[in-house]
Design a protein around this nucleic acid. Sequence first.
RNA 1: GCGCCCGUAGCUCAGUUGGAUAGAGCAUCGCUUUCCUAAAGCGAAGGUCGCAGGUUCGAAUCCUGCCGGGCGUACCA
Length: 591
Amino acid sequence: MPSGDAILFAQLPGQTVTDLNSHLRERLLAAIADLQLPAEAAGMVRLDPPRNRDHGDVALGAFQLAKLAKQPPPKFAAELAEKIEADDVIESAVATGPFINFKFRRAAMAQQVLTAIQTEAAPYGNAAANDQVVCIDFSSPNIAKPFHIGHMRSTVLGNALCRIHRHLGATVHGINHLGDWGMPFAKMMTAYMHFGDEAKLHESAMRHMFELYKQFEGEAQKNPDLLQEAADHFKNLESGEDNVERRMWQMLRDESLKAFQGPYSRLGVTFDHITGESFFEDKMDDAMKRVEAAGVLEESEGAQVVTLKEFGIKVPCLLRKRDGTTLYHTRDLAAAFYREREFSPTRILYIVGSEQKLHFAQLKGVLEKMKEPVANAVEHVPFGLVLSKSPEGKWEKFASRSGNAVFLDEILDQAVAKVRGVIAEKNPDLEDPDAVAEHVGVSAIVFNDLKNGRIKDVKFDWDAMLAFEGETGPYVQYACARLSSILRKVDMPVPGVESIDFALLADAERVLLTMMDFATAVQRAADQSEPSIVTNYTIALAGEIHSYLADHYVVGAESAVRDARLVLVDAARRLLTTGLGLLGIKAPERM
RNA sequence: GCGCCCGUAGCUCAGUUGGAUAGAGCAUCGCUUUCCUAAAGCGAAGGUCGCAGGUUCGAAUCCUGCCGGGCGUACCA
């Protein structure tokens, strides 16, 4: 996997310099060779952004190198800094204590970054295809339950990860591993047989099924026979025969799937494959045979299991129940084999809540015990729960059982309505305000969900969800709208980079430096499966450009300055559009 | 009980894998619009990084032990 700073920028005409950082690195390596340090020194040249950017653009802590040189770090730093002379790219190298702070020439920086952005060279545009194949198993809702706020996380995280990996050149298979099999579906079926209403189902499948879900849970408490009935229905369903259960399953599945299209299209989420658990119905026998052939299957209390003690997992992995039916594990195992055969993935990411950590540890453990190479690709990407505030003010898990689930549609509608109000107040002349409100409102919710580290629990809070100021989706989108507005107002095409005097952009150094951080942000997001790194990047860039625009006018500026700033504004808009695009959010022209 | 995760400003969170004076947003207080969208910008105030040890030139970050919260712990997914 290439590291961020190894990604090459497009070469400029007549120039051999590639990326600023790699240029600096080369100079440093040459200097180190000059100082006759051992070969391992090369690995110690780590350039990081300084904590405080007033120090410089990038910094090198010379601790390890100094040790190698058998010198006190400050002395060594001074000596090394001395060796780095200014050139076309490097403005200065200054030792302060054990650190060396480097500054790039502003004109060179502007030229490199803005040229790369304008020509859509990687990392700003899509990278050339590489040999990475990434399967992303995401959203995967239990379609017998309503699509509520809890389902949004996997959907939105997975969608962003698909886009991030594609941007980096990977072949991506976005897979919706629908929960359309197993006991939950059998329960829904049973509920429908007892309490269902066809008219209501057609009117709003999701609401009706939610009612049925609640009713079933309530009734089952009083009458445990219902659970047995559901188990029997599942057994009949899994028999493979064309029976009542199968027809009922097909009907309910079709209705739910139709209903789920609503939230998916509003969120702008698409899948490359919709292969639910039922898809693996006829592939589980082969999977079980393969487990058996590997000699790892054991019998325990009438069920078939794989023990995983040697992997430090105390709970055996259960693959077939006493009544002969299969489980979640069985289907995930069959799915792993299927994906291996069809896609030859280098990574399979499962975007599933952290409460299922054990499940995926077991899945990986079984594959490892079988000595299946695909085990190495299996990677659980866990995320935190959605918590709601109880009347006592404590944060607790959303309990859809008690019926306090919040439908995603409701949340989106509220956000859209609020945005509509803001538009009426701030921009009453806006064309097609309803479409803009829909877009900005939905984006606000998505952005909010992608802002914090995924492992953290999300505290569901209407005020935070509907906040449009500060670090929010609308804040970033507003920056895009302002930039677009400027581009419209100047009423001329954006000049090509070859005609620009980049020295005029020295006052935009903070914007330019932030632009340079894009590559590492995207790479880290992919490596760590952490879209929030990109989200926070867009906030940072929007902040810098907002701040810059406050006292740097484009329209009305002297023509050379105007042209240079125009290129900057256009680049910022492009980069924000790309960044938001990686999150599955579109940048509005107006809002 | 055991395993895993989380604990940073009043609130919600960053902190680029161990580096320099721990950063944002919200809320509070003040300022900025004859000029490209004020959903914005600038400033003030706000901290014993849960607690205690340890590792080393250096720890919010790594190790150990506590405390607090959460999740999981085979016939659900």
